[in-house]
Design a protein around this nucleic acid. Structure first.
Lengths: 208, 208
DNA sequence: ATAAAAATTAAACAACTGTTTAATTTAAAC
DNA sequence: GTTTAAATTAAACAGTTGTTTAATTTTTAT
């Protein structure tokens, strides 16, 4: 599998990413990509073979990016609660910086069965889940966290909350009286992030 | 705004809903809809005017459905914690039964600015939020719930968790060893529902 | 400077897109 | 039974789609 792209290819990939995220895969024509990138239509086929393969290349390009971003929190010298806080901050920032590709991965690939192309993404997810498990088990051994937690359901709550909020930008901007995009972005990094941290910590610690 | 449709129109709407949810708006052609519905291509234009207006009609049709489904929990004779449980159950069931239209509303309308068409949806959201506020305020007055909760961020956690889980069906089926679609559906109605309930209750009750 | 390879182009391709037309069939009203 | 309206059809429309071709320019290597 090809993982190295030249400057021109990367330029095309980045523009395709934006357009796919904005208008969907089917909603974006090669001609639009070409026009936006200031190149000839044929160049996409020339470099990537087809529109489908362009999407695959984009996913390869971006998920290899994500791989690198994985940090191993479980080794750091923090107590479990602090580790949870930090992990959520990492989650939020990672999605925030890769909104485009996340959107594409979740919406273009959600229904269809292109599992092979999602292998890399699944590897990232599995590794994240492992890190999370390590942290929670540590907290459970120290008697801080409850023991009847279904750990695989925690990332959906973190990511899902974030996604649902950003996907309904217009609605929440109006609801929370956030006038500019900057205010919206700022709200995510402060209030929303804190809300998610509070939620997960409460779930882990609370005894009913 | 037209809100009544005849049998034939509803048949077309339902098939369009499935196809839009599966392949997206741009990814679904009128001819595919017509073929699937066993009608002539021209009938869509004849009944709805255009593909765009077909989508609008679908949203009108479905959101008027949703409106009726809104129950007013806040008046029932239950304690706040039970009300939260019941409300989440309603949330989960409502999304579960209207997966298609929710997907369309969130993904086809997320980026573009077709706010006027989303008015009905926003009304439903606002009403749900009001109900939730009533319940939480009651719990706060009784000293059961904490007072520093950002209430508008709770629906994103409920809906987001659910969505993220269903959107990544293939991944979670493999991860949780759910072999059939029935097992997956069952997991949603039991474990996932309980997880969301636990999460929200913990957030509301837990004192740090 | 010359030859080979890579990059870029405009044009053409057939298939598909949403939509409209005009003719025909079916149903309703009188 | 006749007239009028609604429903349905196949065909055509013009525009767009992804992709390929073959010619041309640019870059690289010798």
């Amino acid at each position: 599998m090809k993982t190295d792209f030249n400057e021109k290819q990367i330029q095309i990939l980045l523009i395709a990413e934006t357009l796919f995220a904005e208008n969907g895969f089917e909603g974006t024509s090669i001609r639009t990509i070409a026009k936006e990138a200031g190149i000839n239509v044929a160049m996409v086929s020339y470099y990537f073979g087809s529109k489908e393969k362009l999407l695959e290349a984009l996913i390869v390009y971006r998920t290899s990016d994500l791989k690198i971003q994985i940090e191993n929190l479980s080794v750091e010298d923090l107590d479990p609660v602090e580790k949870i806080d930090k992990m959520i901050e990492l989650y939020v920032n990672r999605i925030r910086c890769n909104k485009g590709i996340y959107r594409i991965l979740h919406f273009e690939f959600s229904t269809e069965e292109k599992e092979d192309k999602l292998k890399v993404l699944n590897e990232v997810r599995d590794k994240n889940l492992k890190s999370l498990e390590t942290i929670i088990h540590e907290g459970q051994q120290k008697g801080i966290f409850r023991k009847d937690i279904i750990i695989p359901l925690i990332p959906p709550t973190i990511m899902g909350t974030f996604f649902h909020f950003t996907m309904n930008k217009a609605y929440f901007k109006k609801l929370l009286l956030l006038e500019t995009d900057e205010q919206f972005e700022n709200y995510i990094q402060t209030k929303l992030k804190t809300h998610i941290q509070q939620t997960i910590k409460a779930l882990l610690i609370y005894e009913s």
